[in-house]
């Protein structure tokens, strides 16, 4: 089996599991909508203020829901000893990391695709002409967050209180990604100049590359021997 096929097989395995239970996507989705609703009450609904905070709320919803999904997906693997099964297969461990990252990105993207229109309606956002760039920013932010998140959730799945441990490890380290992603989003939605938006997107891309390379190199050390 070639590397690409191995990656696709692992992703397929995760997707089939999820399609049967729908446990992760549904819980992530409900959670992200709850976050959006709760934040709407904290900031005066319908006010001008909510529009400027909308990009931040969007990212809070995404990272909280991602955190939940990441921790669930690895807890499931841990409970049913899936990981041992995969490790017994003749699959290169670095390919396993790539497959896991892609799988997590797919889950998070599905949640984003559903919750973004809800946010557009609730916060009355104007996406004319910025939608392609917004989707790109969403993807780049998700890529970085899922890249670090995949490594850390493998770690936290093997600790005593894994649900608590994941955000404690993940959030401080990914602050640069969250910052760059939410800044790009808010500049986009505020209709800022393309050079200003691009300056933050470029930073986001650089951070993505650094984090993905480092996590890719370190992933084999967190797997079982």
């Amino acid at each position: 089996m070639t590397g690409l096929k191995q990656i696709l097989t692992i992703i397929q395995k995760d997707l089939i599991l999820e399609m049967r239970s729908k446990e992760i996507i549904v819980s992530m989705l409900v959670f992200s909508l709850i976050v959006v609703a709760v934040f709407n009450f904290i900031f005066d609904p319908g006010s001008e203020q909510i529009r400027t905070t909308a990009p931040g709320i969007l990212w809070i919803a995404i990272i909280f829901a991602s955190n939940l999904g990441l921790s669930r997906s690895f807890a499931r693997e841990h409970e049913n000893a899936h990981m041992q099964g995969i490790l017994l297969c003749p699959v290169d461990r670095s390919l396993l990391y790539i497959a896991k990252v892609i799988g997590n990105i797919i889950f998070i993207t599905i949640v984003e695709i559903i919750s973004l229109p809800v946010m557009v309606v609730l916060f009355d956002l104007d996406l004319h002409g910025v939608l392609p760039l917004l989707l790109l920013v969403l993807f780049l932010g998700t890529l970085g967050f899922a890249g670090v998140g995949t490594l850390f959730s493998t770690i936290s799945a093997n600790t005593k209180s894994r649900e608590v441990m994941l955000p404690i490890l993940l959030f401080p380290v990914t602050i640069p990604i969250i910052l760059a992603a939410s800044k790009s989003t808010s500049y986009l939605l505020a209709g800022r100049d393309i050079t200003q938006i691009w300056s933050w997107m470029r930073i986001l891309i650089i951070f993505d590359v650094i984090f993905l390379v480092v996590c890719f190199l370190l992933y084999e050390y967190v797997l079982e021997e």
Binding site: I155, I210, V214, L218, Y221
Partner: peptide
């Protein structure tokens, strides 16, 4: 090993955090 991996990423994160802020 977990701690070592986190210790490395944590330190590499320092200049990244500083630059982003």
């Amino acid at each position: 090993r977990f701690a070592a991996v986190f210790g490395i990423i944590g330190f590499l994160d320092v200049p990244i955090v500083y630059m982003s802020i």
